[in-house]
């Protein structure tokens, strides 16, 4: 247990000490929100039925729609890149210091994943700075509900990151694999545009993408979906369904917990095979 805490503590400490990384992982979601969000907002509105749209669709605001996706993006990129520290520890030799110590491989893996998750939750919370600028209303109770969900998502993604990192030896290789993974996962998650009217094959990818459920959960909490009109809900793409069954929030949580368990087990097994030499 003390081992898990030590591994966790080191990664969190290093994250806050590394200013460049702090700013860097903040800049990407920020630029997406400003450039992509504001730039596309007019076009999106036009597509939704023009500026003269009547009824509930008049309330559709693209920047608002995108915001939960941006939070998802911040959590996602931070947690998946957190596993870079595992590869770097191998490269710079520190992994040997950890591996020759009496801490079990499982504790190391869990400590690493928890470290990445903590940092990612922090990044996600940092995104709340934008809230006043985009006209959203967020209160403390939303944030308190958001934190455990962000942590759950971050845990799943960090485990996927560790699974990848445990098989790779150089940070170049890791970064390349992650880049290849990030874009399809982000674009097929509903973070940037409503997922409707997509080709069937794409729909399959969307439904197996863990990030889809993550983004959907963020939307449901941040946009307060339970207070929306059905038509607006539909336009926001909030009626996520699998086999004609509309997924509930609880089911999403269960799905993420299951994914988290599967990936942390796979990652731990894969990491345990790491030889220190």
């Amino acid at each position: 247990m003390a081992g898990i805490v030590a591994i966790w503590q080191r990664d969190v400490l290093k994250f806050f000490r590394d200013r460049a990384r702090l700013v860097g992982s903040f800049a990407m979601p920020f630029m997406f929100l400003i450039l992509f969000g504001s730039g596309m907002s007019g076009a999106m509105k036009a597509m939704m039925g023009g500026t003269g749209a009547s009824g509930p669709l008049r309330d559709f605001d693209f920047v608002e729609f995108m915001f939960p996706g941006i939070v998802g993006m911040a959590v996602f990129t931070t947690s998946i890149f957190s596993a870079l520290s595992v590869v770097q520890d191998k490269e710079f030799g520190y992994m040997r210091e950890i591996l020759v110590s009496p801490i079990s491989r499982m504790s190391i893996a869990i400590g690493k994943v928890l470290g990445g998750s903590t940092v990612a939750v922090f990044q996600g919370l940092l995104m709340m700075i934008f809230v006043p600028f985009i006209g959203l209303e967020i209160n403390l109770s939303i944030i308190l509900r958001l934190i455990p969900v962000m942590f759950l998502v971050a845990f799943v993604i960090s485990s996927i990151g560790l699974l990848i990192a445990s098989t790779l030896k150089t940070s170049q290789a890791f970064q390349m694999v992650i880049q290849i993974l990030i874009f399809p996962m982000l674009f097929l998650s509903g973070a940037f545009f409503p997922l409707s009217g997509m080709p069937a094959w794409m729909n399959v990818l969307v439904k197996i993408n863990p990030l889809t459920y993550a983004v959907d959960m963020f939307k449901k909490i941040i946009l307060q979906a339970d207070q929306m009109t059905p038509a607006l809900k539909e336009a926001m793409g909030l009626n996520l369904s699998v086999f004609n069954h509309t997924i509930t929030f609880t089911e999403e949580v269960l799905f993420m917990v299951a994914a988290g368990l599967i990936f942390i087990i796979l990652a731990t097994v894969s990491f345990s095979r790491t030889e220190a030499t």
């Binding site: 030590a6 503590q9 080191r10 400490l13 290093k14 030799g93 520190y94 210091e97 110590s101």
Partner: peptide, 17 residues
């Protein structure tokens, strides 16, 4: 060693490990 940490932090982590 972990280059980005202080000597003390390196030693403290070792104690915990």
């Amino acid at each position: 060693l972990d280059d980005k940490l202080t000597a003390n932090e390196n030693l403290m982590l070792h104690c915990k490990f």
